[in-house]
Amino acid sequence: MASGALSTLAIATLAGALRVSTPFLFVSLGECLTEKSGRINLGNEGALVLGAMTAYAGSYLAGNPWLGVLVAATCGGLLGVLHAGLCSLTRINDIAMGIAIMLAGTGIAFFFGKPYVQPSAPLLPTLPLGLWSDSPQIRSALEVSPLFFIGIVIGIFMTWAFQNTRAGMVVRIVGDSADAARAMGLRINLVRFAATATGSALAGIGGAFLSLVYPGSWNEGLSSGQGLIAVALVVFARWEPLACIGAALLFGAAGALGPSLQTVGVSQGYYLFNAAPYLLTLVLMFIAVAPGRRMRGAPGELSIVR
């Protein structure tokens, strides 16, 4: 009995982790890219919600969910363009502007999203990776969205690109030392503009996952703050795209553990599990940072690590 409950728990947590982690994965990769260029974008929460709405609307109107994903990336990217454009003015606080962008993005999504709460749009297909198993639980747990794998590929690509491509190096230089970048004749604002817009587009795709895969509908309570949590997640991952993948899975699993525990009858401490990833991030920061020492891997120009 106990082992049965344990395997139910493990499967439910695995299923939850695969589903819950994908939006985290996209938003954190987007946030990671933006922060690597030396700017923080809390507006990714707005891009996520706007992406969720536009993806659903796009899929409903065009009848093709992949077109919805494209629309979400575009709209998220536009919000990033707004943030990047405004933050390139002098004396603008990127944290406060991010919150304003979050508010505007969420507002626009709710405003235009009202007509799409009721109708059902075509959802993205999933890959049935559990066909080998007889257990319906495992089968449904391993219905993995292709977006999950796309996110992992993007994460691996970003790691490689930061090390091995000119564009990746340029982003890192701009993020680590504006003085060095200026001395090399790099156009700092342009690089940050591109990084922020691309990052927001990724956040938009994360939103598309919410509305087109899991939970797979559009309503105003769809996001549970993944866009803001991504900031913590990127710190946890020490600004490494590969580590972002692991961190997204961990945050997803921690988020899924609570509901899974409920399915096997454990209801105590449900909410404390939700706090586990944040507590872990805090402890990690506490260990990693010492007075007068910057966190390893942190971009030097980033306002939140100075």
């Binding site: 944290i95 703050g225 803001l228 949590i229 900031v231 913590a232 710190v235 105590q268 401490g269 449900y270 909410y271 404390l272 939700n274 706090a275 944040y278 507590l279 991030t281 805090l282 920061m285 506490f286 940072v289 010492a290 007075p291 007068g292 020492r293 939140i304 690590v305």
Partner: peptide, 28 residues
């Protein structure tokens, strides 16, 4: 002050922890 941790990230993390503690106590 003592450890040099960034207050923006720490306060955001602590807000989520606070809400979890709040939910735990109110529902428990």
């Amino acid at each position: 002050a003592r450890r040099g941790l960034n207050e923006t990230i720490v306060s955001l993390l602590m807000a989520y922890i606070a809400i979890a503690i709040f939910n735990h106590l109110v529902e428990g």
